[in-house]
Amino acid sequence: MQVFNKLKGIVAPLEAVNVDTDQIIPKQFLKRIERTGYESMLFYDWRYLNDGKTLNPDFELNAPRYEGASILLAKDNFGCGSSREHAPWALDNYGFRCIIAPSYADIFYNNCFNNGMLPIMLPSDIVEELFDEVRAHAGYQLEIDLEAQVIRKPGGESIAFDLAPFFRERLLNGWDQIGLTLRHEAMISAYESGRGFQPVGS
């Protein structure tokens, strides 16, 4: 898994609450059997006009000032709906390695960490302030320091964020979760023997 340590990049705002994974990547793109190549499909129905090719000038992310953005600023309950991991894949393939929002849907939140992406949760008022600042300054960048668990603003001011220590360690080291779990393989086997391999309910 890709390591996440420090990231400095352009911030792009997404002005909607309850952004569901159907919006992040619509279903017609879930037929592929790959993990990569989803960048052009991100926010497809919002990003393009009805021809599916021409960029929608009203969709904020399409503005030239957000080109190359790697940090997505979002609103409450980001990533709700379907469990499709294609959603974080599409965000990552597009270039977003970090999301900042007041809250996330559970499954999406977990899926991000499994792809070396960092979803940061901050209080609503701080997120709203960031929205204002991003829009006020073209080229607005933030620096994410995962080790120190702070976001540094252009003026030097910093915002601390919370994160479960285990998630932090995994990202900092790029650890493969399956490998981590298999360190405890003997305990899984012991658990299975205790139950005679029968699933509970049997």
């Binding site: 993990r35 469990s83 499709r84 991991e85 974080p88 499954i107 977990n110 899926n111 499994n114 792809n115 979760q177 399956i178 779990t181 298999l182 393989e185 899984i188």
Partner: peptide
């Protein structure tokens, strides 16, 4: 529900 990385995790472990 789980994501695909977790599907892989459950398959393997």
């Amino acid at each position: 529900g789980i994501g695909t990385s977790e599907v892989e995790h459950v398959l393997a472990t």
